[in-house]
Write a protein that binds this DNA or RNA. Sequence first.
DNA 1: GTCTATAGAATGATAGAC
DNA 2: GTCTATCATTCTATAGAC
Lengths: 214, 214
Amino acid sequence: MGRVTAESTRAGERILAGLDLWAEWPTATQRAIVGAALESFAERGFHGTSLKHIAQGSGLSTAALYVHFASKEELLFALSRRGHTIALELVRAAAVEPDPAAAMRVLVYSFTRWHAEQRTTARVVQYEQGALTAAHAEVVAELRRDTERVVRGLIDRGVAAGAFTVPDVRGATAAVLSLGIDVARWFVPGGPWTPDALGLLYAGLAGRMLGMPA
Amino acid sequence: MGRVTAESTRAGERILAGLDLWAEWPTATQRAIVGAALESFAERGFHGTSLKHIAQGSGLSTAALYVHFASKEELLFALSRRGHTIALELVRAAAVEPDPAAAMRVLVYSFTRWHAEQRTTARVVQYEQGALTAAHAEVVAELRRDTERVVRGLIDRGVAAGAFTVPDVRGATAAVLSLGIDVARWFVPGGPWTPDALGLLYAGLAGRMLGMPA
DNA sequence: GTCTATAGAATGATAGAC
DNA sequence: GTCTATCATTCTATAGAC
């Protein structure tokens, strides 16, 4: 199994390296604002964050923020959409691998590692949807449905190929996604696992859930 | 396996029936306040909830709330502590079963079903800790550590007895808890699973993760 | 124990100078 | 594009009548 895990790691690392959260915000000021908002939203939540937090975190006045973003909620939306897009691209990149078992290992490795490494972004993505306007919430809901469809499609493919054995494909999809997503809630750097080690561990556990031969 | 799942269901149902969230609040007014707070905290989060929400949800004025609770944060703390205590009692009751495999099935079934059935309470328990004062956060953190210890202890016992095979006991503990906890985030009544069906499904998936013979 | 009224602070967002 | 100043509102919590 050593070879297999090393391959998953390398493929997963390549995928993660190809994703850049910041591509949407080219200027230093934008990045300072988005970075400060990200930190505060992740730590205190959207409603627990005031513009003063974001202003102080980015070294600007509250008034200056409005030159770059129309409102606090628009700032959250931009962040949430970008994070959801990254997560979707991540699972899509993993799912292109033809062998379902290998694809699933890479997917769970990357998805888990991303939730650990980018814990701040992931928290906002996974837990602050309720603060969006209805129209904005629908945009990210569609991205979430796409992500879920990719994972479900891969499990379907694995079952059809005889690589996986699952009692309930939708249930297995929910479980695989839950493992990764919940990492954003509990993971703290400096604990028992590096993001890499956790990704490998969870790839193995997900494989067992899907009835993959060890 | 039909017999085994039926037994897990019955044992889990007995445990859930023995737990009463409301025992701490005997009067109708208290229950109205706590119920309204629970709904709003779960839907909008602590910081997204104003006293007006709670007052309107309970049919009282905002001033009347202060007769029953010292502050909004004390109300959250009372709720969070009670919910954490229920979750701890739940896993403890499941872990008394001598056979590790049976105990784990009952534990995952009950824990998952509780997070689905009591989704409102579970959301506040799992996602609003950050809004507590440092002193109150420490109280619930200790309850969480106790819960984690019970699950870890059961996995240790199963490994020692040869009933489970896991590469990393702490990692397996995190994964088993994550499966149940994350249900509070995504579960909606009326979807593809009843809380009972999801509990059974996840008990099976957790068993596979732990290397339990089917 | 409940109410109306309100204090006192903080909030999201805007106006207008530079 | 950034600032200081400020508006209008909302918030948690309290005062005092019943």
